[in-house]
């Protein structure tokens, strides 16, 4: 029926939809981390792509040297990279509190180049293969398309992480602290909340999300020192579309931009790599604060 209507085979359409959903999952988890970080630190974390790559490398190194399997790495790598994030905030980013945004941008951008350069030097620019867990090998034929188990898992795991993060932000006490800290950190601290600690933990969590996405991506994209720098440009566009610092905006925009990109591949392949930037330009003209951003 679809093929009659649109002149496109359903396998192609749904295949690209799934691909879009997977990319969208990565966009969502990464832009979610950026949103958390921007809210509390007021820093656009340009090191996010490098930390995503660190997550993938951490998983690969854990497997190679400590024989820790995928599932162990999926837990451990975000914890390790998140801890690195805590150290980065504690010893570098915290010193930039209260100065111009530009310094945070420069510092995190420099960090990204440093980390990526270091990994290219140590491991070369070519990718290291990383196997998906055995339990998720293969797939299922749904009739209109073939669904690989691992890709379905990536979408589900991302959605769960996004939903949990949203719930914590919107429905819990710590979430109320985080939202209040986004609005007026000084006053929150004057109520007795240890805001510097909260900020450090928020950065660690945002970074851990990036690392989590990195581990999820490892079996799909291979483990490559530059895997983050390619992706992160699109993720920044997603963040701008959704609205800086908006949790819901990051999740919804991330997923939908992945799907938009996938559909563009079907109907207008030439535009598929630029469509998100076109959307960004339009959103910036019509709603400069982003789709979910608050205009102050």
């Amino acid at each position: 029926m679809f093929s009659d209507l649109l002149g496109i085979a359903p396998q192609v359409l749904f295949g690209q939809l799934l691909l879009g959903l997977i990319n969208g999952s990565f966009y969502a988890v990464l832009s979610l981390g950026l949103a958390v970080i921007f809210g509390l630190l007021n820093i656009v974390n340009f090191a996010h792509g490098a930390l995503y790559m660190l997550g993938a490398f951490a998983a690969w190194l854990l497997g190679k040297y400590l024989h820790i399997d995928y599932w162990g790495a999926l837990i451990l790598a975000p914890l390790i990279v998140g801890f690195i994030g805590v150290l980065l905030d504690r010893f570098l980013l915290r010193r930039l509190a209260g100065v111009d945004h530009l310094y945070g941008l420069l510092l995190t951008f420099g960090l990204a180049m440093l980390i990526e350069g270091l990994f290219v030097k140590m491991f070369g620019a070519s990718g290291q293969p990383f196997a998906a867990p055995k339990a998720l090998n293969g797939g299922v034929n749904l009739g209109f398309m073939f669904l690989p188990y691992y890709r379905a898992w990536v979408v589900v795991a991302s959605l769960v992480v996004c939903a949990v993060t949203w719930y914590v932000f919107e429905r819990t006490k710590i979430g109320a602290y985080l939202r209040a800290g986004t609005e007026n950190p000084k006053l929150l601290q004057a109520f007795g909340v240890n805001v510097p600690l909260l900020t450090t933990l928020a950065y660690g969590y945002g970074v851990a999300l990036a690392a989590f996405a990195g581990v999820l991506a490892a079996p799909i994209t291979q483990v490559n020192p530059l895997m983050g720098s390619n992706l992160i440009i699109v993720v920044f566009a997603v963040v701008v579309i959704g609205g800086m610092g908006s949790i819901m905006g990051a999740i919804v925009t991330g997923l939908s931009m992945g799907v938009v990109e996938g559909l563009t591949k079907v109907f207008w392949p030439e535009a598929s790599s630029t469509i998100i930037f076109i959307v960004m330009a339009i959103v910036l003209v019509l709603r400069p604060a982003g789709l979910f951003g608050r205009t102050n």
Partner: peptide, 30 residues
């Protein structure tokens, strides 16, 4: 500031400082 507050000090700022994105009850319980 947070250490000072924990000595039992309550501060009501001039601009009132109600958190816009929190509900009344969330503000109250914050």
């Amino acid at each position: 500031a947070h250490e000072i507050a924990r000595l039992g000090v309550g501060y009501c700022p001039e601009e009132r400082g109600i958190f816009a994105s929190l509900s009344v009850e969330e503000n109250l319980l914050l």
